[in-house]
């Protein structure tokens, strides 16, 4: 941003190559091919049952792919660091939101399960659909005012 760079001799540079980084097409194609290969790998990985490992592998590959897109296709590798900071920062806020919401909801899941079991019992024998329906309806009707 220093103004002495703006001397007329170099003005042209400013307009052309000075603005934005030009990424060679070859490099883009290489990245594109790598992305397609990674897609293939992530599909192939699902044929091996690794238990919980599967989702971590899938997510790790997705993160690698996303980083490649961001760094090369979106020029982040050559861009101002602050733009990258915004990008990573927004993801961090999503992570924060997920962390709190997930922690909280996993805490009260047992309550929901308990409620469901009792309300299912109140719903009666599932073979007798009619009876169960009426009872559930009645149950919900009486519950409704307190829900407000």
């Amino acid at each position: 941003m220093a103004d002495n760079e703006h001397n007329p001799l170099h003005a042209h540079d400013d307009h052309g190559h000075g603005v934005g980084h030009i990424v060679p097409i070859k490099l883009l194609v290489v990245v594109g091919v790598v992305l397609l290969i990674l897609t293939w790998i992530t599909v192939a990985a699902t044929y091996f049952d690794l238990g919980d490992g599967n989702i971590y592998i899938a997510l790790a590959i997705a993160v690698i792919k996303a980083s490649l897109v961001a760094l090369f296709f979106m020029h982040l590798r050559w861009d101002r660091p602050f733009n990258g900071f915004i990008f990573v920062g927004s993801i961090a806020f999503v992570a924060l939101f997920i962390a709190f919401a997930l922690t909280d909801s996993s805490q009260y899941q047992p309550d929901i399960k308990e409620y469901r079991i009792t309300s299912d019992l109140k719903g009666g024998d599932s073979v007798d659909a009619q009876k169960k329906l009426e009872e559930t309806a009645a149950q919900l009707q009486t519950d409704a005012p307190s829900a407000e």
Partner: peptide, 16 residues
């Protein structure tokens, strides 16, 4: 980081 303080009495878990 503090939004949960609106939910103290509306179903949020004690931990949170």
């Amino acid at each position: 980081l503090v939004w949960g303080h609106h939910m103290f009495v509306s179903g949020q878990s004690p931990l949170l």
